[in-house]
Write a protein that binds this DNA or RNA. Structure first.
Lengths: 112, 112
DNA sequence: TTTTATACCTATCGAAAATAGGTATACATA
DNA sequence: TATGTATACCTATTTTCGATAGGTATAAAA
């Protein structure tokens, strides 16, 4: 009842890093932003996003900033320089992966 | 020491199904074929490929045919009709995924 | 004779997403 | 007033699946 669905490994991390490159956001906001940015194709819930944010912060890829807003507290996340580098690395990994798969799906290019 | 690396979930399954669409192959051959077809970008070893083949056969997506070749026995795998359908489904899943990610990586298209 | 290539196999581990909860405040509505 | 919904945070547990690291056995090459 808790499948790791196809092609999802690493995707939440890549998308979160990419979205935070544009602007700082808080967790609850990120959940909605990921869904919106992917046109509902990728929709990781809080149970995925929060642990991910905590892990990325622990690794020094994200930095936080608590901000009280109308009685509640928002935890804003932003990229560190190491986070930016990781985003680049992950993007490259994904591009290589995507190119390799597309290559196979299209089939062998016959040079005859 | 056994990481599930980024962007790999479901990829061996997709690639194996796609390669078997072209022609029947045996396990050991598939290991090399996947690496070759992806220009060494994706190189799942026997420990990944064999359990995968067994699972796909159990699910009725692949059918086998044992063939003795020079003292050794090769187990050839071929797609069933359900395997073909699964290949189409997986390909679609991957395309949707890839398009969604590319969309995010490129950033928002400003309509202003 | 020993090593390398071929050809099959399995057990165990770790990582990561999904599920399914839980806490607490603000606000709208019945 | 009470109830429900949206906001905003969190964690524990489960499952899956690729990776590692073995193992067996034959054929061919060094």
């Amino acid at each position: 009842m808790a499948t790791t669905p196809t092609f999802m490994t690493g995707v939440p991390e890549l998308l979160v890093l990419r979205l935070l490159q544009d602007r700082e956001m808080y967790g609850y906001e990120i959940v909605a932003a990921v869904a919106e940015a992917t046109s509902q194709v990728v929709t990781p819930k809080e149970g995925v996003i929060y642990p991910l944010l905590h892990a990325l912060e622990r690794e020094g890829l994200l930095r936080t900033q608590r901000q009280p807003v109308g009685g509640r507290t928002r935890v804003y996340y932003g990229l560190t320089s190491r986070g930016v580098r990781r985003l680049f690395d992950l993007s490259d990994d994904w591009s290589r992966m995507a190119r390799a798969i597309q290559q196979v799906l299209r089939g062998p290019t016959r040079t005859v």
